[in-house]
Amino acid sequence: MFDHVVIGVRNYAVSRLFFVQALEPLGVTVVHDGPLGIELCRPDSLSSLCIRREPEESPAHLHLAFTADNRQQVEAFYRAALAAGAMDNGAPGLRAQYHENYYAAFVIGPDGHNIEAVCHEAEA
């Protein structure tokens, strides 16, 4: 269901320590550590949790990315979400900055959250 979840945090050091320590007993480890934050997941999982730095004066950010089986599902998600009242935040298309087959669409949901559908497979 989930490909990845991104949580924006205001106190990055405290949140980083919390998530790394709290999720370690569940087999979750840091798989990427960069200037924007960290990505955590289990070695056998395709789903990840990303903790991102947010300016202290900004509202906390939430990004949900749902796994799509194919590019047609990404496109159908995008159309259905817009019809349901979402705002466009990125039409279906390749996002090569992530990897060569990252095909995704983004919308802003009713509460202002960034909602994505993504397919990692090459076009059939």
Rank of each mutant, 00 (worst) to 15 (best):
2 F>D: 03
2 F>V: 12
4 H>I: 14
12 Y>C: 09
13 A>C: 01
14 V>Y: 04
15 S>T: 11
17 L>V: 00
18 F>I: 07
18 F>Y: 14
19 F>V: 08
19 F>Y: 15
21 Q>Y: 06
21 Q>A: 01
22 A>Q: 02
23 L>A: 03
25 P>W: 01
25 P>I: 03
28 V>T: 09
33 D>E: 15
34 G>I: 10
35 P>I: 13
36 L>K: 15
37 G>A: 05
37 G>R: 01
39 E>N: 04
42 R>K: 13
42 R>D: 06
42 R>N: 04
42 R>V: 03
43 P>D: 14
47 S>W: 07
48 S>N: 06
49 L>Q: 00
52 R>K: 13
56 E>A: 13
57 E>L: 13
59 P>G: 13
59 P>M: 13
60 A>M: 10
62 L>P: 02
62 L>K: 07
63 H>V: 07
64 L>A: 08
65 A>Q: 07
69 D>A: 14
70 N>Q: 08
70 N>V: 09
71 R>Y: 09
73 Q>V: 10
73 Q>F: 01
74 V>I: 05
74 V>P: 03
78 Y>T: 04
78 Y>D: 09
79 R>Y: 00
79 R>C: 08
81 A>F: 12
81 A>W: 12
84 A>T: 11
85 G>N: 11
85 G>W: 04
86 A>Q: 12
88 D>S: 11
91 A>S: 11
92 P>L: 07
92 P>I: 13
93 G>T: 02
93 G>M: 05
95 R>E: 08
96 A>V: 10
100 E>N: 10
101 N>Y: 14
103 Y>E: 09
104 A>V: 00
105 A>G: 13
105 A>M: 08
106 F>A: 09
107 V>Y: 08
114 N>R: 15
115 I>E: 07
118 V>D: 01
118 V>M: 02
120 H>D: 15
121 E>A: 15
122 A>W: 01
